[in-house]
Design a protein around this nucleic acid. Structure first.
Lengths: 339, 339
DNA sequence: CTCGCTTGCTCAATCGATGAAGCAGCATTG
DNA sequence: CAATGCTGCTTCATCGATTGAGCAAGCGAG
């Protein structure tokens, strides 16, 4: 009963002809509101069976064109190369599907131009709503969306035009720094300022984390060494070269570090292993992010894990409530136990 | 000059009216074949400017509905939680965009039912072509696609109905096993059979890797211990419990292991660190997959990295050539240097 | 002056699904 | 017996972009 693969796809008109009925009856049956349209159960069953036999598949382009809502939700995301964004995307897709929405996700490689292009492409596909994750310029995206009458939500990095859901970066960084400072004091018997490495100094998350870092130092009575705050970008290569030039200009390297993502940690660790510094005593680390293998790297690494499920709950709550005010929802991250 | 965000989106009809011309002229200008349609450069420029001013965005649903080809390419992928699939998706998106195609990717969480559902959804969105990555039942997906007259390609796991691009699992596993066997001999002064853990015994990749594993043992003159071939599934929990029950039933644990993915390695490492076995001497490992932090776990881990760029080159070559024969292209994986 | 050709457009059908409006046919009610 | 209401459909316009067909104006050739 299989169609020849050459022929055009089966449409509701084909089914209507086969069933000896009209396309509109077929449509009503197949999209489930045949009760409302007063189609008899008999005809409904006949059409359903026929559709199945013929392997009928709805043409979403036609359907979306006609309807006012597309039920497509878009997300842009910077990268797929770490657990944080990976789980955001996975969770987003699952939650969208649960709600009968069709998720489309695209990765913009931290490229501002690509972000805009991707946002425009999604609007062309009539997304009902766009989630901008870790966007360089969330307000620009929000503006484009608003011009098209599409709702937008920021995730991970906040903006000022639409609602945002982010981690509580300050509290997370405060707690992480406290722990690393305490570990250093326990290990070395003296208080010592930490290194902060990774992230863009201009982004909100990084500046909040630096603030938490400073506050924890202040609490402990340790002066922050300003030459040790290296917001050099996230990429591993950038973190690596920041470490290299740090080592070139100071006489003693810091004994503890706050690394601002697993991405940056990759570069830091590479430098540590290649440079030959820290061979007698590994630095005590704190990483604002989580990865299972990092957790296995040793008992000298503390980690903060962002609470992706709760963040996405908040995102969907915003979408469903229809809220459009530019409030920022902060979700407390999780302190991962060492070992 | 911004539109009120309440109003409907601008269409070619709106632009036509503003420009005092027809919708068909606008369409021709905006989709670039105005030369062919003999529209004057003057009018073309006027329309282009207007479209820009009004923030016009093409309605893809309408466009795709009318056109023959949608230029949408779909990919389904099992998970986003490891570097291998992450880079596949990232590369796929980049290559699709380079070619003027619109990529849509969805993750099916290794759930066979979800795979089928996702494939159907993509067909509803009129994809021109579907790439089934690591699918449980690639032939089923190929069948659904063929019924809709849509091209399909398998990636990572082969099928028998459409072209497939996979790693050369046998050679990779052979080389990996050789190295771990050699490491064991060097380290312990004697030849010893390895453990194989992770993967589904029924999947092609795993069985090819087991074959490479066996061949390397045979070459070296070591008998494979059949009780040490644990194809327990990929999930960390499965690998972990396989290790646990192995430890419960043997008196001495193997000194070297072949772990069939970073995913499984996560479980194996967790067990190693929690169980308290291997405290005096860490096992020498080989992992069929790559992750930067795994590479930093120590000098006792050999890794095989699948060559994602070459795999995707092959995929797009198939798509572009229009090949439909079920040949399997094997891409040699890369041996990662230790350290 | 007329024929033929080019230029620069417009018209109208079309893609497939949707749903408001309408229309038979039958049953019930006062 | 007319009026009313219900059931079970069908008809048709519509969403926005695309494209084959067609048409008017202009121009050069004969």
């Amino acid at each position: 009963m299989k169609r020849a693969s050459q022929t055009k796809r089966t449409t509701i008109y084909d089914l209507a002809e086969m069933a000896g009925t009209s396309a509109s009856a077929v449509s009503a049956v197949l999209n489930g509101n045949w009760k409302k349209r007063r189609i008899s159960a008999q005809l409904a069953e006949k059409i359903t069976r026929l559709a199945e036999e013929q392997g009928y598949a709805l043409n979403m382009q036609a359907s979306v064109l006609r309807r006012e809502r597309s039920k497509i939700v878009g997300m842009i995301v910077p990268k797929y190369d770490n657990r944080y964004f990976g789980s955001i995307v996975e969770q987003f897709e699952a939650m969208a599907r649960e709600r009968g929405l069709f998720p489309i996700v695209t990765c913009t490689r931290r490229d501002p131009a690509l972000e805009i292009e991707a946002a425009r492409a999604m609007l062309s596909y009539q997304v009902d709503c766009l989630i901008a994750t870790g966007a360089t310029d969330p307000d620009r995206i929000a503006e484009i969306c608003s011009a098209a009458g599409v709702r937008a939500v920021n995730l991970d990095l906040p903006g000022s035009r639409v609602p945002s859901v982010i981690s509580d970066n300050f509290s997370g960084a405060l707690e992480l720094t406290r722990r690393v400072l305490a570990n250093c004091e326990r290990e070395f018997g003296e208080k010592t300022p930490l290194l902060f490495v990774g992230g863009r100094g201009t982004d909100h998350n990084t500046s909040e984390r630096v603030r938490g870092f400073r506050t924890a130092h202040a609490e402990t009575g340790v002066a922050v060494d300003e030459t040790l705050v290296l917001t050099c970008g996230y990429a591993p290569e950038k973190a690596e070269s920041a470490m290299k030039s740090l080592a070139a200009r100071v006489e003693t390297l810091p004994r503890g570090m706050f690394v601002n993502s697993t991405i940056s940690l990759e570069g830091v660790m590479r430098w540590i292993r290649r440079s030959g510094h820290y061979t007698d005593q590994v630095p005590l680390l704190g990483c604002f992010d989580w990865d299972p293998f990092v957790a296995m790297l040793g008992d000298h690494i503390e980690m903060i894990r962002q609470d992706v499920p709760r963040m996405l709950d908040a995102v969907f709550e915003i979408i469903e409530s229809g809220a459009t005010d530019a409030k920022v929802i902060q979700i407390p991250p999780i302190v991962e136990k060492i070992g």
